[in-house]
């Protein structure tokens, strides 16, 4: 399994043609206390770069963009009940959705862990 990162602070962990998507620890730290996560429905389809979820703090609502094109296999409904999980484990338990990838080739445009760390460093 390999994890890839976007410049918009999403991550995707890929296993064959499925991937698990969430936002990064860095993003969760910047947002402050997360109070709500709006997730898509199972079966929803989106293209790379589409907004597919919304994370809200008290003072802001941020769109979350799809790192790759795909369809939603499963959503992490636990986040609806306990949005604070995003602050506690953004890159662990607090994943947003599992998706089936439409085109694994899209992954080549994303960053690996080291590249993402360097990218955040520069912000």
């Amino acid at each position: 399994m390999t994890t890839y990162y976007t410049k918009d602070h999403e991550w995707i962990r890929v296993d064959g043609d499925t991937g698990t998507v969430g936002i990064t620890n860095y993003a969760a730290g910047q947002l402050g206390d997360v109070v709500y996560v709006e997730l898509p429905e199972t079966g929803a389809k989106f293209a790379r770069g589409d907004d597919f979820a919304v994370v809200e703090s008290v003072k802001a609502a941020s769109d979350v963009y799809a790192p790759v094109s795909g369809s939603v296999l499963e959503v992490n409904t636990a986040l609806t009940e306990a949005p604070e999980k995003v602050n506690e484990a953004a890159q662990g338990d607090a994943w947003f959705v599992r998706v089936r990838l439409t085109d694994a080739g899209e992954l080549s445009g994303l960053m690996d862990e080291a590249a993402y760390a360097a990218f955040c460093e520069g912000l």
């Binding site: 709500y36 809200e56 008290v58 003072k59 802001a60 609502a61």
Partner: peptide, 14 residues
């Protein structure tokens, strides 16, 4: 005041 992310001063055009 709460759930303000629905409102214009935060969500603006959305």
């Amino acid at each position: 005041l709460t759930l303000s992310t629905r409102e214009q001063h935060i969500r603006r055009d959305k």
